[in-house]
Nucleic acid binder design. Structure first.
Length: 103
DNA sequence: CAAGGGGCTGTCA
DNA sequence: TTGACAGCCCCTT
């Protein structure tokens, strides 16, 4: 079935990420069928409303780290949420290979 | 109507 | 191994 917009596709994929796991922008964009939309994924999540229920904090870059500058407010927030789900951080990042969402 | 930016990625040296 | 550059598409001003 067809969605109203590409961003809705992204929302559904992000919402499908299980707790305790994380996914990369490229992975999400690839699952959506557009491997080159990785950048649009981040930009779209950025524009999400403050009351969104999407687990945007489970989305990280391909380096297994947060896209925000370390020590930044959103950086700590995302880190805290991931840790609450069982993600173990090491320095500025974590073991992406162990926590990355496996389909 | 037109131009620029954005929570990125992959390849080359 | 790490550092740097260009390209992808949609949304906002």
């Amino acid at each position: 079935m067809q969605t109203s917009s590409l961003k809705e596709e992204i929302w559904q994929i992000v919402a499908a990420i299980p707790a305790g796991s994380v996914a990369t922008y490229g992975q999400i964009s690839h699952l959506a069928g557009y491997p080159t939309y990785a950048r649009y994924v981040g930009t779209t999540l950025k524009k999400l409303p403050h009351d969104t229920r999407l687990p945007w904090h489970r989305v990280v870059n391909s380096k297994g780290q947060l896209s925000f500058p370390a020590k930044s407010q959103p950086w700590h927030q995302q880190k805290s949420r991931l840790e609450a789900e069982g993600i173990v951080f090491i320095g500025n990042g974590f073991s992406l290979k162990k926590f990355q969402w496996q389909t």
